[in-house]
Design a protein around this nucleic acid. Sequence first.
DNA 1: GTCTATAGCCCGATAGAC
DNA 2: GTCTATCGGGCTATAGAC
Lengths: 185, 185
Amino acid sequence: MAKPVGRRGETRERVLRTALCLFRERGVGGASLQMIADQLGVTKAAVYYQFPSKDELVLAVVQPALDRLAEVVDLAEGIGEPDARRQAAVEGLIDLILDHRQIVATLYSDPAVAEVLDSHPDLGGLIERLRQLMFGPDPTPSRLIAAAMVGGGLISVGTEPLLADTAPDVLRRELRGAARLLLRD
Amino acid sequence: MAKPVGRRGETRERVLRTALCLFRERGVGGASLQMIADQLGVTKAAVYYQFPSKDELVLAVVQPALDRLAEVVDLAEGIGEPDARRQAAVEGLIDLILDHRQIVATLYSDPAVAEVLDSHPDLGGLIERLRQLMFGPDPTPSRLIAAAMVGGGLISVGTEPLLADTAPDVLRRELRGAARLLLRD
DNA sequence: GTCTATAGCCCGATAGAC
DNA sequence: GTCTATCGGGCTATAGAC
């Protein structure tokens, strides 16, 4: 809704950038619309003109990463051989995390986000499909553990402040190596 | 459910247990003192009799894990050889996470917790010392990445709901193996 | 130790002028 | 598109009776 945002929708973009920044710093629950508005130099009501509710704003902030996740899962599921399929999922996840570090950090920063995302109809199924890809059809404990380790490790590396300035291709190479080690590809 | 409490200090323990449970489910910011009191069948004021503020309650809930972390760091720092030192830190961390899964999940559930902990005088230094132990004196990017991967992976495995019923010694063995792989011990 | 009651603040959200 | 002004509600925290 609200696509003809006057001209160019530039304000909307500024709100999204500022919101992402504050969500990242203070968590979604800790970043009020007042803070976002103050940082932009406008009032809360101006933000409400762009987004009908805070939930909608949160959703809009994380949407790019969700779209990308859907692409990754779709692509991986199209691969027949199980190991290659999981490998495609892992590499897609790595690229996703590196391309959307701040959003991923936001997603994992606050349980309130999970609640907002539960209202997103497709997402629950999407995550379940991702789990299937990562764990395989018959998840043994050690496979579960390895997959959880990879997932958490990727996110941790992608969001670690000390690694914020590390070149993405270095990170990508190391992460692929680490995932391969843990999953014994 | 609970009836008048007989012994001294028992109520305090019940508050702590209930708070941890709710913090884990809804995040610290999402769990109000009203909810905690309701679940215990008392009023907010009764909780305030036990803890002077919500921040103090949060601190008391996570204190056991912080104490344990201090032990782990102290012990590891006493080891001279760098690789053995890091190995001791990693194994101590693994045991800590397995023994305090719920607290660790709480610690990582909400940025609000980090703010509370910043008021804890010793903790900042403690985490810095842990970083030193994990990264070593001269952290190359690939060492940084491996250490971040291990840290995030351990937490992810320790808090993954699907692994809640997995035997601790299985988890411990797998986690030690994974850490050894990644850190090339 | 636990209660009732309330103060005081900030939140998300809405109404309507410009 | 942005503003001022306000509403209703939940929050932490306190005061004082029992």
